[in-house]
């Protein structure tokens, strides 16, 4: 409707120039957004010794799966993958549960002490003890260097709680109220009535946390030093940081006997690109289909009370 009205407007020459320039700019920007990823894709799928000659920009010249195979044969990759997936699944579910329950509780009008509780939960948004104080506390309570350090410290998010509350406020109060009259207890109301009615926000919170957990790596750097607990992102950082890790990966691959003599043909750049590809591919494949939930979440979050 709006577009129709606009098209009826008399179109001036300056408007035309603007529209053309703007469209060109948007196409250019879109290209810039995906270009680095295309470059990594090309480098990862191109023969390493061929890449070293230069000239690879965003299309492989001499296709090969060797680089990827070296990364995929490496046991470290699979340990990292398992830990990352576990973290995403367990972490997102725990975070959803904690945040959703608190968001629902926030709805209760006239709950004595509600303001105190909410205030208590707000303060950490603005002030924290810092990493070192965290390390000391995590050591004291025993989560340091365990899998739980990946799950518990970031299970509750004040912002996400407010987003949940904002969404739940759109559900008519009469629904939980009538269930209460029918003798349902709060847990039943929460899981049987509210939860099914708020699937969009459940998706938002789950996905936000999933992406955060998948991409986070500094938690491992600060609080974990057991190699069986390293995440994929951490392994990637190690590979970017230390030549040794790359050589280990190549040596492991050679030891399997599938590649012949690879040492001379491999370059750190090719292995790194393959590792980046493997680490990011799950998210890049999924994101176009789930981004609408992310966008919805941002919009709900931007509504001020």
């Amino acid at each position: 409707m709006k577009a129709l009205k606009r098209s009826k407007m008399k179109v001036s020459a300056s408007r035309w120039i603007f529209v053309v320039c703007n469209t060109v700019l948007m196409v250019l920007l879109s290209f810039l957004f995906i270009f680095p990823y295309l470059n990594i894709l090309a480098t990862a799928l191109n023969d390493a010794s061929d890449t070293a000659l230069g000239g690879i920009v965003f299309w492989p010249r001499s296709w090969t799966l060797d680089n990827l195979q070296i990364v995929l044969i490496d046991k470290t990759t699979w340990t990292g993958f398992t830990i990352s997936v576990l973290r995403v699944v367990v972490g997102s579910l725990v975070a959803l549960l904690v945040t959703y329950m608190a968001g629902y509780a926030m709805l209760r009008k006239g709950l004595p002490g509600r303001a105190v509780i909410v205030g208590f939960l707000t303060v950490p948004m603005f002030f924290g003890g810092g990493i070192i104080a965290n390390i000391v506390v995590y050591r004291m309570i025993g989560v340091y260097n365990t899998f739980w350090v990946y799950i518990l410290p970031c299970a509750f998010s004040f912002y996400n709680m407010v987003v949940v509350r904002t969404y739940l406020m759109t559900i008519p109060e009469s629904l939980p109220e009538s269930a209460r009259l029918d003798g349902a207890n709060e847990l039943q109301i929460l899981f049987r009535i509210m939860l099914p009615l708020s699937m969009p926000i459940v998706a938002v919170i789950l996905l936000w946390n999933a992406v955060f957990y998948w991409n986070d790596w500094s938690t491992t750097l600060y609080y974990v030093n057991r190699s069986d607990l390293y995440t994929m992102q951490f392994n990637l950082q190690m590979m970017l940081k230390k030549q040794q890790n790359i050589q280990d990966a190549i040596a492991n691959a050679v030891a399997t006997g599938k590649f012949g003599n690879l040492d001379s043909a491999m370059t750190p750049e090719a292995i790194q690109a393959a590792q980046i590809l493997v680490t990011t591919l799950p998210i890049v494949v999924v994101y176009p289909f789930v981004q609408k939930y992310f966008v919805q979440g941002v919009m709900i979050g931007s509504v001020k009370e």
Binding site: M26, I34, P36, N39, I40, N215, W217, E269, Y287, P288
Partner: peptide
Amino acid sequence: TVQTISYLPYFLSWVSVTGMAVSMLSEYGA
């Protein structure tokens, strides 16, 4: 379409972004 493409970098971790940057800027990089 432009919007969806523009979200791509947001979904990548900083680790992989620095990896990409270094790769692109290297001697035989893009």
